[in-house]
Nucleic acid binder design. Structure first.
Lengths: 143, 143
DNA sequence: TAGACTAATTATAACGATTATAAAGTAATA
DNA sequence: TATTACTTTATAATCGTTATAATTAGTCTA
């Protein structure tokens, strides 16, 4: 049930002292239930039925709020706009070069790479990012 | 000697049927010799002494030409502008969260991750990207 | 509950990176 | 030399995102 996730996220925000406005609730709900990795504009469009007067700025503002609360991650790829991903469990993304679809997959982590980089460069390592690019099954079939 | 690298790159372009204009030569030279990962605008500014009339569009156009020839890679991070990296040997980047510095480091490759992702998702995997983020030694000292 | 304070939303303008366009210049080829 | 294709330039347009100011809504305290 995704409503449990939503409630957990909301509790999380409340504890951080963030007010739960109708807009925030809707954005969060959309992020959790859509199971996709929408752009700010996609969220804006998806909610304009419910909130005809909502401003794009509200979407961006609140995505930032969620990011700061650690609930949402911003995915930045080359072109065009950022996509936003609900942080649930650790996972990586594989992205279709042809249609842009993003699919989650799990992998034990790359601690080894991090520690090698740390010793070679002298950096204090905080995190890493990794994505894989390829062609998804649907696009392969269409080819 | 970096002039050897430049010549190799130029031969590469010529074979691909790309004309070597003074601007292209200068952009390529700057990319190879600067040893950094400049933005389009940094390249533009670095060359405005030599080419007072060069247009930003020229920089962007030629970076695209170099990319298509496989000589240059575009690095896209979250905010602000893309950075451009001469493709020499395979390497990854570690990026300082505090000052933005980018340092190269080598790692044997992540074939294992690619093949796991392939089998789990059904994608035909083409490539991956990975970066590590942390604090560089200089910024640690300043702290 | 009224009044005061704070935070959130809206509407709009501004910004910055990148791309498109059209005109002018340059090189290559016949 | 004439023709053609390619490059560069200058400029305007586009698009995602952020800043601003005004309005609205929530929260708190007396």
């Amino acid at each position: 049930m995704s409503s449990a996730k939503i409630n957990a996220a909301i509790d999380n925000l409340k504890e951080a002292g963030v007010r739960i406005t109708p807009q925030r609730h809707a954005i969060l709900e959309h992020l959790i239930e859509s199971m996709s990795h929408p752009t700010a504009d996609e969220i804006y469009k998806a909610l304009e039925g419910k909130f005809p007067n909502m401003s794009v700025a509200t979407v961006y503002n609140n995505l930032r709020v969620f990011k700061e609360a650690g609930l949402v991650k911003e995915l930045t790829y080359g072109d065009s706009s950022s996509r936003f991903d609900c942080v649930t469990t650790d996972h990586y993304h594989i992205i279709c070069d042809s249609c842009g679809k993003i699919v989650d997959f799990h992998y034990p982590g790359l601690d080894e790479v991090e520690s090698l980089a740390e010793s070679v460069t002298g950096f204090e390592v905080g995190r890493h990012r990794m994505e894989i690019y390829g062609i998804c099954p649907e696009c392969k079939r269409k080819h």
